[in-house]
Computed example of a mutant assay.
Amino acid sequence: MSNIVQDFGSLISKLNELTFSILLAGYKTFPPSWSKRGKKNLYHSLWFITKGTGDIVINGKKCKLSPGKLVVFTPGMTCDKKTNSSESLEFYFIRFTHAGAFEKKEQWHFINPEEISFPLQGVYTIKNSPGVAFLLEKIISLSKRRGAVIAFKKKILFQELLLMFIQDFHTQTISKDTKQVIEETIDYISHHYQRTITLTDLAKMAGLSNSHYSRLFKKYTGYSPIEYLTHLRIDLAKELLAHSDIRIKEVSQSVGYEDELYFSRIFKKFVGVSPTQFSNENKMANQ
Protein backbone atom coordinates (compact mmCIF):
# COMPACT_ATOMS: atom_id res chain seq x y z
CA MET A 1 0.00 0.00 0.00
CA SER A 2 1.28 3.47 -0.89
CA ASN A 3 1.71 6.21 1.68
CA ILE A 4 -0.89 9.00 1.66
CA VAL A 5 0.33 12.47 2.59
CA GLN A 6 -2.23 14.53 4.53
CA ASP A 7 -0.30 17.12 6.54
CA PHE A 8 1.06 19.17 3.65
CA GLY A 9 1.84 22.20 5.80
CA SER A 10 4.14 20.20 8.06
CA LEU A 11 5.78 18.44 5.10
CA ILE A 12 6.50 21.70 3.27
CA SER A 13 7.83 23.33 6.44
CA LYS A 14 10.24 20.46 7.06
CA LEU A 15 11.50 20.38 3.47
CA ASN A 16 11.90 24.15 3.50
CA GLU A 17 14.36 23.81 6.40
CA LEU A 18 16.68 21.51 4.42
CA THR A 19 19.50 22.07 1.97
CA PHE A 20 20.47 19.31 -0.46
CA SER A 21 23.36 17.87 -2.44
CA ILE A 22 22.97 15.24 -5.16
CA LEU A 23 25.55 12.44 -4.96
CA LEU A 24 24.42 10.23 -7.88
CA ALA A 25 21.67 10.27 -10.50
CA GLY A 26 20.84 7.90 -13.32
CA TYR A 27 18.52 5.34 -14.91
CA LYS A 28 18.60 1.63 -14.04
CA THR A 29 17.07 -1.60 -15.33
CA PHE A 30 16.71 -4.76 -13.25
CA PRO A 31 16.04 -7.97 -15.28
CA PRO A 32 13.07 -10.33 -14.79
CA SER A 33 13.20 -12.47 -11.64
CA TRP A 34 15.89 -10.26 -10.09
CA SER A 35 15.83 -10.05 -6.27
CA LYS A 36 17.83 -8.79 -3.34
CA ARG A 37 16.87 -9.55 0.27
CA GLY A 38 17.74 -8.03 3.63
CA LYS A 39 19.49 -5.05 2.11
CA LYS A 40 20.05 -2.32 4.70
CA ASN A 41 20.06 1.10 3.12
CA LEU A 42 23.10 3.30 3.79
CA TYR A 43 22.02 6.46 1.95
CA HIS A 44 19.06 8.70 1.24
CA SER A 45 17.83 7.92 -2.24
CA LEU A 46 14.72 7.78 -4.38
CA TRP A 47 13.48 5.65 -7.25
CA PHE A 48 10.83 6.64 -9.76
CA ILE A 49 9.45 3.60 -11.60
CA THR A 50 8.83 3.98 -15.35
CA LYS A 51 8.40 0.41 -16.66
CA GLY A 52 7.70 -3.07 -15.33
CA THR A 53 6.44 -4.38 -12.02
CA GLY A 54 7.81 -5.84 -8.85
CA ASP A 55 7.53 -5.93 -5.07
CA ILE A 56 9.36 -4.21 -2.27
CA VAL A 57 9.19 -4.95 1.45
CA ILE A 58 10.32 -2.01 3.59
CA ASN A 59 10.75 -2.71 7.30
CA GLY A 60 8.20 -5.53 6.97
CA LYS A 61 5.65 -3.56 4.91
CA LYS A 62 5.01 -4.96 1.42
CA CYS A 63 4.26 -2.63 -1.52
CA LYS A 64 3.76 -3.17 -5.26
CA LEU A 65 6.10 -1.46 -7.68
CA SER A 66 4.70 -0.26 -11.01
CA PRO A 67 5.01 2.77 -13.32
CA GLY A 68 4.28 6.00 -11.44
CA LYS A 69 5.48 4.72 -8.06
CA LEU A 70 7.98 6.79 -6.10
CA VAL A 71 10.14 5.00 -3.53
CA VAL A 72 12.04 7.06 -0.95
CA PHE A 73 14.81 5.20 0.91
CA THR A 74 16.40 6.42 4.16
CA PRO A 75 19.51 5.16 5.99
CA GLY A 76 18.89 2.12 8.18
CA MET A 77 15.80 1.06 6.22
CA THR A 78 15.79 -2.71 5.58
CA CYS A 79 14.44 -3.72 2.17
CA ASP A 80 13.62 -6.85 0.16
CA LYS A 81 13.26 -6.14 -3.57
CA LYS A 82 12.25 -8.32 -6.49
CA THR A 83 11.06 -7.91 -10.06
CA ASN A 84 8.29 -9.71 -11.90
CA SER A 85 9.27 -13.02 -13.49
CA SER A 86 8.18 -11.91 -16.95
CA GLU A 87 9.47 -8.32 -17.30
CA SER A 88 12.27 -5.97 -16.35
CA LEU A 89 11.87 -3.13 -13.86
CA GLU A 90 13.12 0.28 -15.04
CA PHE A 91 13.47 3.40 -12.92
CA TYR A 92 15.20 6.74 -12.42
CA PHE A 93 17.26 7.01 -9.24
CA ILE A 94 18.84 9.81 -7.23
CA ARG A 95 21.11 9.43 -4.22
CA PHE A 96 21.31 12.58 -2.13
CA THR A 97 22.34 14.02 1.20
CA HIS A 98 20.78 16.83 3.20
CA ALA A 99 21.34 19.05 6.21
CA GLY A 100 19.26 21.59 8.12
CA ALA A 101 19.82 25.25 7.25
CA PHE A 102 17.05 27.75 7.84
CA GLU A 103 16.34 31.26 9.11
CA LYS A 104 13.76 31.89 11.82
CA LYS A 105 13.08 35.21 13.52
CA GLU A 106 16.22 36.78 12.07
CA GLN A 107 18.42 33.90 13.33
CA TRP A 108 20.06 31.17 11.24
CA HIS A 109 19.96 27.55 12.43
CA PHE A 110 22.20 24.73 11.20
CA ILE A 111 21.61 21.02 11.84
CA ASN A 112 23.95 18.16 10.91
CA PRO A 113 22.62 15.47 8.52
CA GLU A 114 22.55 12.74 11.17
CA GLU A 115 20.45 14.95 13.46
CA ILE A 116 17.60 15.74 11.06
CA SER A 117 15.42 13.17 9.31
CA PHE A 118 14.07 13.40 5.78
CA PRO A 119 10.27 13.83 6.00
CA LEU A 120 9.40 11.36 3.21
CA GLN A 121 10.03 7.62 3.24
CA GLY A 122 8.42 4.56 1.69
CA VAL A 123 6.27 4.19 -1.43
CA TYR A 124 4.06 6.91 -2.94
CA THR A 125 1.90 7.17 -6.05
CA ILE A 126 2.64 9.98 -8.52
CA LYS A 127 0.02 11.07 -11.06
CA ASN A 128 2.13 13.59 -13.00
CA SER A 129 4.62 11.04 -14.32
CA PRO A 130 5.61 13.06 -17.45
CA GLY A 131 6.47 16.14 -15.38
CA VAL A 132 8.53 14.12 -12.91
CA ALA A 133 10.34 12.24 -15.69
CA PHE A 134 11.16 15.53 -17.44
CA LEU A 135 12.86 16.95 -14.33
CA LEU A 136 14.70 13.70 -13.65
CA GLU A 137 16.04 13.66 -17.23
CA LYS A 138 17.37 17.20 -16.76
CA ILE A 139 19.04 16.24 -13.46
CA ILE A 140 20.65 13.15 -15.02
CA SER A 141 21.88 15.21 -17.97
CA LEU A 142 23.52 17.72 -15.62
CA SER A 143 25.05 14.89 -13.57
CA LYS A 144 27.28 14.09 -16.52
CA ARG A 145 28.89 17.51 -16.23
CA ARG A 146 30.95 19.26 -13.56
CA GLY A 147 31.39 22.72 -12.09
CA ALA A 148 29.89 25.06 -9.50
CA VAL A 149 27.18 26.37 -11.84
CA ILE A 150 26.13 22.81 -12.74
CA ALA A 151 25.97 21.82 -9.05
CA PHE A 152 23.82 24.88 -8.34
CA LYS A 153 21.44 24.03 -11.20
CA LYS A 154 21.14 20.43 -9.97
CA LYS A 155 20.25 21.64 -6.49
CA ILE A 156 17.53 23.93 -7.88
CA LEU A 157 16.10 21.16 -10.07
CA PHE A 158 16.05 18.73 -7.15
CA GLN A 159 14.07 21.23 -5.09
CA GLU A 160 11.70 21.68 -8.05
CA LEU A 161 11.32 17.89 -8.12
CA LEU A 162 10.42 17.77 -4.42
CA LEU A 163 7.92 20.60 -4.95
CA MET A 164 6.37 18.67 -7.84
CA PHE A 165 5.97 15.63 -5.56
CA ILE A 166 4.21 17.74 -2.93
CA GLN A 167 1.90 19.36 -5.49
CA ASP A 168 1.08 15.92 -6.87
CA PHE A 169 0.26 14.55 -3.40
CA HIS A 170 -1.86 17.62 -2.78
CA THR A 171 -3.81 17.30 -6.02
CA GLN A 172 -4.67 13.70 -5.16
CA THR A 173 -6.45 14.74 -1.95
CA ILE A 174 -8.10 18.02 -3.04
CA SER A 175 -11.08 18.04 -5.39
CA LYS A 176 -11.38 20.64 -8.16
CA ASP A 177 -14.38 22.23 -6.45
CA THR A 178 -12.54 22.54 -3.14
CA LYS A 179 -9.47 23.98 -4.86
CA GLN A 180 -11.58 26.63 -6.60
CA VAL A 181 -13.37 27.64 -3.39
CA ILE A 182 -10.13 27.98 -1.42
CA GLU A 183 -8.36 29.83 -4.24
CA GLU A 184 -11.23 32.33 -4.42
CA THR A 185 -10.95 33.14 -0.72
CA ILE A 186 -7.14 33.36 -0.96
CA ASP A 187 -7.59 35.83 -3.80
CA TYR A 188 -10.01 37.82 -1.65
CA ILE A 189 -7.52 37.91 1.25
CA SER A 190 -4.72 39.05 -1.12
CA HIS A 191 -6.77 42.00 -2.37
CA HIS A 192 -8.57 43.02 0.84
CA TYR A 193 -6.02 42.37 3.62
CA GLN A 194 -6.37 46.00 4.78
CA ARG A 195 -9.98 45.34 5.80
CA THR A 196 -11.27 43.52 8.86
CA ILE A 197 -11.55 39.90 7.72
CA THR A 198 -13.00 37.20 9.97
CA LEU A 199 -13.17 33.44 9.68
CA THR A 200 -16.95 33.73 9.44
CA ASP A 201 -16.66 36.12 6.48
CA LEU A 202 -14.40 33.73 4.57
CA ALA A 203 -16.44 30.62 5.41
CA LYS A 204 -19.64 32.36 4.31
CA MET A 205 -17.96 33.37 1.05
CA ALA A 206 -17.01 29.72 0.50
CA GLY A 207 -20.49 28.51 1.43
CA LEU A 208 -19.16 26.31 4.21
CA SER A 209 -19.31 26.10 7.99
CA ASN A 210 -16.44 27.75 9.88
CA SER A 211 -14.96 24.42 11.00
CA HIS A 212 -15.22 22.71 7.59
CA TYR A 213 -13.75 25.72 5.79
CA SER A 214 -10.88 25.95 8.30
CA ARG A 215 -10.01 22.28 7.85
CA LEU A 216 -10.02 22.54 4.05
CA PHE A 217 -8.03 25.79 4.05
CA LYS A 218 -5.33 24.35 6.33
CA LYS A 219 -5.16 21.18 4.26
CA TYR A 220 -4.67 23.27 1.14
CA THR A 221 -2.24 25.93 2.44
CA GLY A 222 -0.72 24.56 5.64
CA TYR A 223 -2.14 27.52 7.61
CA SER A 224 -5.45 28.34 9.22
CA PRO A 225 -7.26 31.19 7.40
CA ILE A 226 -6.35 33.75 10.09
CA GLU A 227 -2.73 32.52 10.25
CA TYR A 228 -2.52 32.95 6.48
CA LEU A 229 -3.91 36.49 6.71
CA THR A 230 -1.51 37.37 9.54
CA HIS A 231 1.55 36.03 7.67
CA LEU A 232 0.54 38.03 4.59
CA ARG A 233 0.11 41.23 6.61
CA ILE A 234 3.43 40.80 8.42
CA ASP A 235 5.30 40.10 5.17
CA LEU A 236 3.83 43.25 3.62
CA ALA A 237 4.68 45.24 6.75
CA LYS A 238 8.30 44.04 6.57
CA GLU A 239 8.54 45.33 2.99
CA LEU A 240 7.19 48.74 4.02
CA LEU A 241 9.45 48.99 7.07
CA ALA A 242 12.55 48.04 5.10
CA HIS A 243 12.03 50.26 2.09
CA SER A 244 10.06 53.35 3.13
CA ASP A 245 10.11 56.11 5.76
CA ILE A 246 6.48 55.93 6.88
CA ARG A 247 5.69 55.76 10.58
CA ILE A 248 4.87 52.52 12.40
CA LYS A 249 1.27 53.65 12.85
CA GLU A 250 0.88 54.17 9.11
CA VAL A 251 2.41 50.77 8.39
CA SER A 252 0.06 49.20 10.89
CA GLN A 253 -3.01 50.76 9.30
CA SER A 254 -1.88 50.03 5.75
CA VAL A 255 -1.74 46.28 6.43
CA GLY A 256 -5.03 46.07 8.29
CA TYR A 257 -4.28 46.80 11.96
CA GLU A 258 -5.92 49.89 13.44
CA ASP A 259 -4.29 49.31 16.83
CA GLU A 260 -0.58 50.12 16.54
CA LEU A 261 0.30 48.40 19.83
CA TYR A 262 -1.48 45.20 18.82
CA PHE A 263 0.33 45.29 15.47
CA SER A 264 3.68 45.69 17.27
CA ARG A 265 2.97 42.68 19.50
CA ILE A 266 1.98 40.51 16.53
CA PHE A 267 4.98 41.67 14.51
CA LYS A 268 7.45 40.84 17.29
CA LYS A 269 5.82 37.44 17.83
CA PHE A 270 6.27 36.50 14.15
CA VAL A 271 9.56 38.26 13.33
CA GLY A 272 11.38 38.17 16.66
CA VAL A 273 12.05 41.93 16.86
CA SER A 274 9.84 45.01 17.17
CA PRO A 275 8.78 46.94 14.04
CA THR A 276 11.02 49.84 15.07
CA GLN A 277 14.08 47.62 15.50
CA PHE A 278 13.37 45.81 12.23
CA SER A 279 13.00 49.13 10.41
CA ASN A 280 16.23 50.58 11.84
CA GLU A 281 18.29 47.47 11.13
CA ASN A 282 17.08 47.04 7.58
CA LYS A 283 17.36 50.69 6.63
CA MET A 284 20.96 50.72 7.85
CA ALA A 285 21.65 47.59 5.82
CA ASN A 286 20.25 49.24 2.69
CA GLN A 287 22.34 52.44 3.02
Rank of each mutant, 00 (worst) to 15 (best):
F93P: 04
P130E: 00
V71K: 01
L24E: 10
T78H: 07
P113A: 02
Y188Q: 06
S45T: 00
V72Y: 01
I246T: 05
K153V: 10
V181W: 04
I266M: 04
L70V: 01
T74K: 14
L162A: 03
D259M: 07
R37P: 06
L89T: 03
A99R: 14
K268G: 05
D201T: 12
G26Q: 03
Y193H: 03
K64T: 14
Q172N: 00
F217P: 00
E87Y: 03
W47C: 03
K64Q: 15
S33E: 07
P119V: 03
N128M: 02
Y262F: 14
H109K: 11
W34Q: 05
K154E: 04
D177I: 13
K154T: 09
K104R: 10
S211T: 14
T221G: 00
R215W: 09
S13L: 10
M164Y: 11
R37G: 06
M164E: 15
I111T: 15
N210C: 03
Y92H: 11
F30T: 05
S13D: 12
G68I: 00
S175E: 13
I226Y: 09
L236W: 06
P130G: 03
I56E: 03
L42F: 11
K62A: 05
F169P: 01
S33K: 13
V255W: 06
K176F: 13
F48Y: 07
L120S: 13
S117Q: 12
F110A: 08
L18R: 14
P32T: 06
V273L: 05
I56P: 03
D177R: 15
V123D: 02
S274E: 08
F263V: 05
T178S: 15
L163S: 15
E160W: 14
P225H: 00
L142W: 01
L42Q: 14
I111F: 05
D55A: 12
S86V: 08
R247A: 15
H243Y: 13
S190P: 04
E87L: 02
Y193S: 01
L229N: 02
I182S: 01
D187M: 10
L229H: 00
D245H: 11
Q6Y: 15
G38I: 04
K269A: 09
R233K: 00
